[in-house]
Amino acid sequence: MALTIKEREIKKIEEIIIDKFKSYFDYFSKQCGTLETYEKVCVLSIKEPTDMMVNYDCRGDISNYANAKFIEWIIDTLSSHFGVSIIDRNSKFNSDEDFRNYLQSHNYNILVGSRYPFDIIDYQDYDKHNEFISSRGCLFSVARRKGMALRKNSLFLKLNDVIVEISTPSIEDVRVKRSKESGLYVYTTVDGVKLEFEKEDLQKYIYNEYKVVKVYVNVTIGFSDNVDDAVIITRSSEK
């Protein structure tokens, strides 16, 4: 039976996301520690203009965002469920060299998540710092300001399934206000123009102009019995 356009789009997004995740799951494929399985974890919910989904290949962007949110979820899960510590780089270390020595002495040879916590602070030391960071196994993403440093074979990841859902948002899902004067719905269109709509007209507009893409994963995580085999690194405002 032939797939519908929506089913084909979902399948393509799923394939790209699986391929994007593959580098992480391949890197952490050695089983370790106690295993925990998580079902239908939402790693992305994003509203996209329908025109962009049809006329512009935004599947790569969706997979990048899903990948980043998935890594953020892993980091948060290792903190909340496995007890991995969180340190602030700017508070704990006086210099880039102190930071490098910390990573080296603890044998943290895999760096994941946001690159920002690992970036150089004193640019006079740029080449040395860059060379050191590049010598680690780096799996950076467009994640926000959290990163994680790990010892080899301390984390196990198994992707059991990727589920992509594409739906149409309702009025309740978008930012909209009622005009006190006219009672109509005031909404900023995809072109950035504020217009007033009757409720039914606004619902039709939203139906035609936007789609909501949600990405879920079923995943199994295992982490070392030694909680010090990883550390989560944030970076507060500069000193």
Rank of each mutant, 00 (worst) to 15 (best):
N160E: 15
V162A: 02
V164M: 08
E165P: 03
I166L: 11
I166P: 07
S167L: 03
T168P: 00
P169K: 01
I171F: 05
I171C: 04
D173R: 05
V174C: 00
V176H: 01
K177W: 06
R178A: 07
R178Q: 13
R178Y: 14
S179M: 09
S179I: 08
K180L: 11
K180D: 14
K180I: 11
S182I: 08
L184G: 04
L184H: 05
L184S: 10
Y185A: 00
Y185N: 07
Y185Q: 06
V186Y: 00
V186E: 11
T188I: 10
T189S: 14
T189H: 08
V190L: 12
V190G: 01
G192Q: 12
G192L: 10
G192E: 07
V193F: 10
K194H: 12
L195Q: 11
L195S: 09
F197H: 04
F197K: 03
F197S: 01
E198M: 00
E200S: 13
D201H: 09
D201Q: 11
D201V: 02
L202C: 02
L202P: 08
L202E: 12
Q203W: 02
Q203N: 12
K204C: 10
K204V: 11
Y205Q: 05
Y207D: 12
Y207C: 03
N208C: 07
N208K: 13
N208Q: 15
N208E: 14
N208T: 15
E209S: 15
E209R: 06
E209I: 05
Y210T: 00
Y210K: 01
Y210R: 01
K214G: 04
K214A: 07
K214R: 13
K214F: 04
V215E: 05
Y216P: 10
V217S: 02
V217G: 04
V217C: 10
N218I: 08
V219G: 03
V219S: 02
T220W: 11
I221Q: 10
G222T: 13
F223P: 00
F223C: 05
S224C: 14
D225I: 12
N226C: 08
N226W: 03
V227K: 15
